[in-house]
């Protein structure tokens, strides 16, 4: 159950090929309206994510991108279609697919340290007391929160809260990280700084990441592929854009690259084109 988030290429290749880590096949999600008719949110989504790939889902609000992420997390069930991680069907939530929540979801009665410790206690239950403490301390240091370890969530800023959320997610060493608009509630300066920090951590320790966002620059800066969803209802994958910039990335260098603007305009055009239809 516990597995290093470091690369483990080629160890598991039983059913799918090693690179096909997360597989989404013909996924449809619909709700039943009160009048009995069907409201289709996501229609026939197919996507694969490789095991060290950073993928962003982008689309207008209400297009179902968060719903898609929640189904990968197992928090919601698809109406039809198949979801597999390393060949095993996803049927319920699991710590191997840890979430970073948009509104942090820290437990307000626990300190920063206790919030991370709760996750570690729950998931790495076979580790010794000393090992657990060490993991918590490492991850506190990783997100620069050692000084605030004993503060309560309502005593720290939004950026710090999301650092806790990220540290909590990484501390349990998930195989895949799911982020639901992780920087959406932060001010622009904090957002940029935290994007840099998360990208640093990811570049040092690559793993599968799926991030929901509505920020084109964030998607281009951080991800390897951008999955663009059309508007709901009946949202589908409109297009998948490869982001060819090599890691580690530098925002300043990206801004000087004409290709960056070409891609940016491409995504913006897609979003404009699908606005209000």
């Amino acid at each position: 159950m516990v597995k290093s988030s470091l690369q483990t290429n080629g160890i598991h290749g039983d059913r799918s090929t090693p690179t096909e880590f997360l597989v989404i096949e013909n996924l449809t999600k619909s709700y039943r309206n009160p009048d009995g008719s069907e409201f289709v949110v996501l229609d026939n989504i197919s996507l694969t994510v490789q095991e060290n790939e950073f993928v962003s889902l982008i689309g207008h609000s209400g297009c179902g991108k968060s719903t898609l992420l929640k189904m990968v997390a197992g928090l919601e069930r698809p109406t039809s279609g198949l979801l597999t991680l390393e060949g095993k069907a996803i049927r319920k939530p699991g710590a191997e697919r840890m979430m970073v929540f948009q509104h942090y979801s820290l437990l307000p009665w626990l300190t920063v340290r206790e919030n991370i410790r709760l996750a570690v206690d729950e998931v790495l239950d076979r580790a010794s007391h000393a090992e657990k403490s060490q993991i918590v301390n490492e991850h506190l240091a990783m997100v620069n929160l050692t000084a605030a370890a004993n503060k309560y969530p309502d005593e720290i800023s939004g950026g710090m809260k999301q650092r806790v959320g990220i540290a909590r997610a990484l501390a349990i060493r998930p195989k895949m990280l799911l982020m639901d608009e992780p920087f959406g509630a932060l001010d622009a300066l904090t957002r940029g700084k935290l994007q840099r920090e998360v990208l640093n951590i990811w570049e040092a320790n690559r793993q599968a990441v799926m991030m929901v966002t509505h920020d084109v620059d964030e998607a281009l800066y951080m991800s390897d592929r951008i999955v663009m969803l059309t508007n709901g209802p009946h949202a589908q994958i409109g297009e998948i854009l490869e982001v060819p910039f090599p890691h580690p990335r530098d925002r300043a260098t990206l801004r000087e690259d004409p290709l960056y603007y070409e891609l940016r305009n491409h995504v913006l055009n897609f979003l404009d084109q699908h606005f209000g239809d």
Binding site: L75, A95, S105, L118, A119, E122
Partner: peptide
């Protein structure tokens, strides 16, 4: 808050421990 419950579910916390560690303090 459903957010707290979602955290517990993602961590695969058994129901009885959710009651003690999440629902009771909340």
């Amino acid at each position: 808050s459903q957010d707290y419950i979602d955290v517990a579910r993602v961590l695969e916390m058994p129901k009885w421990r959710q009651v003690i560690k999440i629902i009771l303090p909340a």
